[in-house]
Design a protein around this nucleic acid. Structure first.
Lengths: 139, 139
DNA sequence: AGCATATATATGTAAAATGCACATAGAGTA
DNA sequence: TACTCTATGTGCATTTTACATATATATGCT
């Protein structure tokens, strides 16, 4: 299989544990909403906030695209701010729908935290089926 | 396509908070690995385990595809089990690389838990910049 | 003026992850 | 035979994420 073409293979998770990141999907959206809940802001600033949140260096493109997407969905709104030196900023505001969304997300997060606690308990030694003490050798 | 053709718009996050799920990405991989750490198993059974983990109904296709992928990556291994009535099962075993990967993931999870606690603290009222009490009206 | 740099926003493209529908097959049983 | 349960898999579209690149405004420097 020297010249086998892998048309859709995801990046391999190496034996060294590379790529083993326990990140949630779509993290950016709630982080942005949470930021905007306190103060209106714009892309460039939000980017710094996001990375302060424990993210590795964010790619600008991803953030800006997410913002436009969020506006299309009605969870944020924007206006140009030009009354200043430097390039114009697109100032964002959270909408009511956005607040609702954030609340939903937060509640979902709570539930998810439990699931993770669960995972961790199992990881640190507890058996998955305590009643049925099947071990590897049993197979 | 009478007026506008939306060629690649993600599903809108409605004002009702639909789709606001705080799921992690790639959850399936660590769950499978954790299961296999205790007992060898096969797809059909692992599927039940996964849903017991707090997932909504798993799609078989996704699980089986993930398993094959994981094998390609060397974090699990499989053999056919035919010594039984019923259709053959592909029995999976976790490899050393798989254990390493799981350990990495678990450590990453710990870190991530902190990030989420952080998020929650901010969400439940704390200010993001306590020193600089900028409010919305200030903008 | 010309040029580099910092700020600021955005698009194009591809890879990776996810979801959903469907295909295959063995074994038991009505 | 036909139906159902167990078991594994492929195809395809959509969604999410990553990476590279493009544009524009202002400031400072030579």
């Amino acid at each position: 299989m020297s010249q086998e073409e892998q048309k859709s293979g995801p990046e391999p998770r190496g034996p060294e544990g590379k790529g083993a990141e326990a990140r949630p999907r779509n993290w950016l959206v709630p982080v942005i909403l949470l930021s905007l809940k306190d103060w209106n802001s714009y892309g460039y600033e939000l980017m710094e906030r996001a990375s302060a949140f424990g993210f590795e260096a964010m790619n600008p493109g991803t953030l800006y695209r997410t913002l436009r997407q969020m506006e299309k969905e009605g969870i944020v709104e924007s206006t140009w701010e030009t009354s200043r030196g430097g390039p114009a900023r697109r100032m964002y505001t959270i909408t009511d729908a956005g607040k609702t969304y954030l609340d939903f997300w937060a509640r979902s997060l709570e539930q998810y935290q439990q699931t993770m606690d669960n995972f961790f308990r199992l990881y640190t030694g507890k058996s998955l089926r305590p009643d049925e003490e099947k071990k590897k050798d049993d197979v």
